[in-house]
Design a protein around this nucleic acid. Structure first.
Length: 425
RNA sequence: GCGGCCAUAGCUCAACUGGUUAGAGCGCCGGACUGUGACUCCGGAGGUUGCCGGUUCGAUCCCGGUUGGCCGCCCCA
């Protein structure tokens, strides 16, 4: 066993039987996002390490301890991307998109990498599907994006997902709140858990969502970020809430919601699922506005908002939902005698060219074993080809779910199968 | 990074307090049914009990280490 090759910890294989769910999720996203006018981008999985340090934030856990960082042969420090917003922003800047169109909507999907402890719904190579909109500072853009996520989750048939929103303010009011909070926490230092005493120094906002009851009580009684927003931020947040309501999107204002990346300003949001299978990995999608990020990376002064959904977690929920995504063959072509093997191969080929999904056991074998295989494949029909069929040009389509065999000319198989499938019994 | 639980056939699990060739169900393959799957019956293949070492006359069982998985913390999608 120890001699056997093995995959890297936290990085999983996706095989047929499960991959269909992933394909379904991605197909739904592509179709929906294009309705919203979002175009797909694909950026490299590796970027200059500095990109993430400058955008996500040097003090964040993601950059501080979770990045896969290495030096290439020219001694450049590179990192496997831990998230998708920074690479997208880099591409937006690099291709001078702002000079070509005032409002840009992009989406992406692909693997992200973070070196951390393995758990359900939390892997070292995980998959996100996300979107970014550049150029609009208006609350309508925040709302459009949340609406897109809502519709995405709806389409997947996922229930019991709550949208939490908050505003973190901007460069004008955030420092004010930050100072107030630190002052308040200092006064209650002794009552906080040891983790929070540490958080106070490093990232005071984190105290707000500590699970400890005492800390929660203290945080609840402390300064509220929403009450310290400056006027423009206040107006923006009110506008977002008004528009969400206009769209009928249910949401909860959670003034203690904090995000782990430094680049967010104003609106932040999280989609939280309540299904027990996810355990503590209950956030299935999250995002927010980052009006200063593009400029801070050397680009134009472009406001932006984005989100990302964790595909691993969505797939987990879909598995729990019991929905079926397997692709079934239309016809299984079985061979009755050795002399019919080649003609059957030719028939299968032709049927595929005519658009059918055809399963054919290239190993031959007894008819019985082929029938078993046909059953296992869950094909809709089985067609047995033998000497009789070849001389007469006539065969029978056997419905595997039961029922009378359907006589069919070998030239008409594709047409008949399509007719039968179009009219479910 | 910290704390706890676990590891036996492809899958889900057995095996009295350490005792002979480690079992069952499902799955897989074949047969009963020589041109028709599922149900039933019969048979077969498949394990260095995760790996390495230790204690013992003897280890799936006890001890140490290691790798992997799960749960909580941290944090996040």
């Amino acid at each position: 066993m120890s001699q056997k090759v093995a995959g890297v910890k936290g990085m999983n294989d996706l095989l047929p039987g499960e991959i269909e769910i992933w394909q379904h999720v991605e197909a739904q996203a592509r179709e929906l996002f294009s309705r919203f006018g979002y175009g797909e981008i694909r950026t490299p999985m590796v970027e200059d390490t500095a990109l993430f340090v400058r955008s996500v934030g040097e003090e964040t856990d993601i950059v501080g301890k979770e990045m896969y960082t290495f030096n290439d042969k020219a001694d450049r420090s590179l990192s496997l991307r831990p998230e998708g917003t920074a690479p997208a922003a880099r591409a937006y800047i690099e291709h001078s998109i702002a000079n070509q169109e005032p409002l840009t909507r992009w989406f992406y999907t692909g693997p992200m990498f973070r070196y951390e402890r393995m758990k359900t719904g939390r892997y070292r190579q995980f998959y996100q599907i996300g979107a970014e909109a550049y150029g609009a500072k208006e609350g309508a853009q925040d709302v459009e994006m949340m609406d897109m996520v809502v519709q995405f989750l709806e389409r997947l048939g996922l229930k019991d997902i709550t949208l939490n929103i908050n505003s973190l303010g901007d460069e004008a009011c955030r420092p004010t709140y930050h100072a107030k909070l630190v002052e308040y926490l200092q006064a209650h230092r002794e009552a906080l858990c040891t983790d929070c005493q540490r958080r106070m120094e490093k990232n005071p906002l984190r105290v707000l969502d500590c699970k400890n009851e005492k800390c929660q009580a203290i945080a609840a009684a402390g300064p509220n970020v929403l009450e310290t927003l400056c006027e423009p931020c206040r107006a923006h947040f009110d506008d977002v809430q008004r528009k969400l309501t206009a769209l009928g999107i249910r949401h909860v204002v959670n003034p203690r919601m904090v995000r782990g990346l430094d680049y967010y300003t104003r609106t932040v949001f999280e989609f939280i699922a309540s299904h027990p299978a996810l355990g503590t990995a209950s956030t299935v999608g999250a995002g927010g506005r980052y009006d200063k990020l593009v400029k801070s990376l050397g680009g134009p002064d472009a406001p932006a908002v984005g989100f990302a959904c964790g595909l691993d977690r969505l797939v987990l929920l879909l598995k729990e939902s019991g929905q079926q995504f397997a692709v079934r063959p239309d016809v299984f072509v079985a061979v009755a005698d050795a002399g019919s093997h080649d003609p059957a191969l030719v028939l299968a080929s032709r049927l595929r060219r005519e658009g059918l999904r055809v399963e054919f056991d290239t190993r031959g074998g007894s008819l019985k074993s082929q029938m078993k295989r046909a059953d296992k494949s869950s094909a809709d029909f089985t067609l047995v080809l033998g000497e009789a069929e070849r001389t007469s040009g006539q065969a029978k389509l056997k419905p595997m779910a039961g029922g009378e065999p359907i006589p069919v000319a070998l030239d008409e198989v594709a047409r008949v199968v399509r007719e039968r499938k179009a009219v479910p019994k």
